[in-house]
Structures are given as structure tokens and as C-alpha cells.
């Protein structure tokens, strides 16, 4: 049985400098795809050549204030060999677009819709790139770091509306492990009020 690190090295051999050297952290192996436009080829090779037949998850990360702003993360798993591999690639805010891997794993379809809905990363060639959690026509991307937790007001006449939620100085956070229910009561805890 190959290990995840061996598989990552094998994957890197077929692409050379398009991939970074694999690095391991707490038993999990990550490869960085340096050229986001080659992500489909890398994924296809990972699936057919290295046996990563399951896309566990596909997410986006907002590195707000840095360039490139977006990181797209692919969590791969091989059912036959039981190894886990993570692929990462970065996209700048100006482009905000990356080729879809729907052709490689059909299951990527909804994951990519979620990443699009929450962060606004578009997936080139996606068969059905609609919002999946927010309503169609919602003008914002709520998981971006510059989007407030309470939300923003929006209005699409005859379709839907949103209003900011009353946070009242919140968010209200429960501290686990308190001795009694008075201590465990949810209270306003902002980054400023943390002790």
C-alpha cells in the first residue's frame, strides 16, 4: 500500500515545477498547485494515476488583505488505498476564476456552487453555477472577511429582501466548562472584549 507522501511525490513527478514539494503537517500531506489553470490536469492525474477517486471537500479561503486573495482547497481521498491528500491553489481577486473540476469528480458540482455562493470565486466551465445557500439574486458574498456577521440590507423587488440581524453588541458566545449555568450563559464576546 502506498503512503500519501509517496503518492504526492508520484503526482509531482508527472508535473514537475507546476506543483510545490509536498509537505506534511500532523500526518496530512499537502501539495500546492502553483499554476491554477492546470488544476484540472493535476486533479485528473490524481484520480486516474494515483487512485484518489473521492473528492471529500472543496472549499475556498479568503486571505483578506493579502495577494492573492483566494485559496481554493481540494481534499482528496482514495477508497482503495485509504490515503488523504490536500491540493491548494491560489487565485487573485482580479481574476477570481478557476477551471471547474466537475468533469473529474461529479461531486464537485455542489462544492463549487457553495464556494461561489459564499466567496464569489467563479468556476470556469461549471455546468450550473448558481447560488446554493443564499437566494438567487442576493447581491453579496457573505463568507468574505469584509462582510459583517449581521449581514447587509438588500432588496430585490418581488423576489426577496434581507435585513441586518440585531447583534446588540454581540456575537453572544458561550464559554464551555463553566461551573454553573450563570457562567455558561452566552455573553457578548467580541475580539475587543476578550480577556
Amino acid at each position: 500500500m502506498p503512503t500519501a507522501l509517496e503518492l504526492a511525490h508520484r503526482l509531482r513527478e508527472s508535473f514537475g515545477d507546476a506543483l510545490s514539494a509536498p509537505f506534511e503537517f500532523r500526518g496530512e500531506v499537502t501539495l500546492v498547485v502553483l499554476d491554477p489553470s492546470r488544476i484540472v490536469q493535476v486533479c485528473q492525474e490524481a484520480k486516474s494515476g494515483c487512485g484518489f477517486d473521492l473528492l471529500v471537500d472543496l472549499t475556498g479561503v479568503d486571505n483578506y488583505g493579502e495577494d492573492p486573495r483566494w485559496t481554493v482547497v481540494y481534499e482528496l481521498f482514495g477508497i482503495a488505498h485509504g490515503c488523504h491528500l490536500r491540493l491548494k491553489t491560489s487565485v487573485s481577486e482580479e481574476i477570481s476564476e478557476i477551471p471547474t473540476v466537475c468533469k473529474v469528480w461529479r461531486g464537485a458540482e455542489w462544492h463549487e456552487r457553495e464556494a461561489y455562493d459564499m466567496l464569489g470565486i467563479r468556476f470556469q466551465g461549471h455546468p450550473d453555477l448558481r447560488r446554493i445557500l443564499m437566494w438567487e439574486g442576493y447581491p453579496y458574498f457573505p463568507l468574505r472577511k469584509d462582510f459583517p456577521l449581521a449581514g447587509k440590507p438588500s432588496e430585490v423587488p418581488d423576489v426577496a429582501f434581507t435585513k441586518p440581524a440585531p447583534l446588540e453588541g454581540g456575537p453572544f458566545v458561550t464559554v464551555a466548562g463553566g461551573a454553573d449555568s450563570i457562567v455558561r450563559e452566552p455573553r457578548v464576546r467580541t475580539p475587543e472584549s476578550q480577556d
Partner: peptide
């Protein structure tokens, strides 16, 4: 009232 979900995604009370 929206309950504990004081969030961008949740309608704050169905009476609206």
C-alpha cells in the same frame, strides 16, 4: 424572532 441565529442568512422572525 430568529432565535439564536443572529446571522445574515436567517429571517429574524417569520412575522415579517
Amino acid at each position: 424572532t430568529g432565535g439564536m441565529y443572529r446571522s445574515y442568512a436567517v429571517l429574524q422572525g417569520v412575522d415579517s
